[in-house]
Design a protein around this nucleic acid. Structure first.
Lengths: 143, 143
DNA sequence: GTGTTTGCAAAGTGTTTGCAATTTA
DNA sequence: TAAATTGCAAACACTTTGCAAACAC
């Protein structure tokens, strides 16, 4: 759970070629200074309000997508109609708690996929997502 | 690819405890009489129109969910904002062609997951979904 | 007949877009 | 100052809902 100081967040943006605007810096701090997170746009919108970061929902969406395009975030799809963004961009998988909507990480080495099928011709592998769907429990008492 | 005659579709509905209305029968035939399919609500809405089955989009959604609740269909989530329904309800996984939006089945025995992580306390396993995301190619020349 | 199912149109949710005003370098 | 970024409000895609009419048993 590396805590990232302000300066690190700043250089993350610079390295990604994104101007460090007030909004982007504020959102990056919320996202990256607190360990691995799985958030929706509404989640950080609410957090930004509380934190006093002046930002609109449209900018939240823009920013999340820019961060994703830059490899700072990764999009996780577990439910139709809701996009989650994961601050952990390295290879790993997820538990999804169907009742609470919580998501939590499964380290890559805790699951191993043996024997991937041959890819369809002309296709190149992008990534393999594994979602372990569970009922009961919650992300609270895990990770 | 078992072709299912009209009578089979009828008994599927009866066994599921669903009244075999004109709409449900028509949709069931479109869905189940042509082998494994991955469709969106709009997909079968369009097909129903062509096939001359009088049905509204609201009923399509109702029906897809009733079929899913009865175990006749399975919902597959690969993109936020779009729900796919899979006529193959047995254990298997999917290729997802990110550009075309095509989905196709990967038989369960072509992928094996070794060593699932311990479930969070209080949680019970619902199912494990594996999505192999690829770029290039399409569902056309596969399966 | 009675309860179920349908369909319309309206509402809902989550997300994207156009464009003028603002901010950054 | 020039180019990038923001924010509003409107538009969007997809899905759900309320309720009266139609249907199945």
């Amino acid at each position: 759970m590396a805590e990232r100081p302000y300066t690190h967040v700043l250089s993350m943006l610079q390295e990604a070629g994104l101007r460090p605007t007030r909004q982007r810096l504020g959102l990056a701090r919320l996202l990256f200074e607190a360990g691995n997170r799985h958030v929706t746009a509404e989640d950080i919108y609410a957090e930004a309000k509380v934190a006093g970061i002046p930002v609109s929902l449209a900018t939240i969406y823009n920013t999340l997508h820019q961060f994703t395009a830059s490899g700072l975030l990764r999009e996780v799809v577990v439910e139709p109609g809701r996009a989650y963004f994961d601050t952990n961009t390295s290879g790993h998988h997820h538990f999804f708690f169907e009742e609470t909507g919580d998501i939590c990480d499964i380290p890559e080495n805790e699951i191993s996929i043996v024997r991937l099928p041959p890819l369809p011709q002309g296709a190149s592998l992008n990534r393999v997502d594994v979602v372990v769907r569970v009922t009961g429990g919650s992300g609270r008492n895990y990770n």
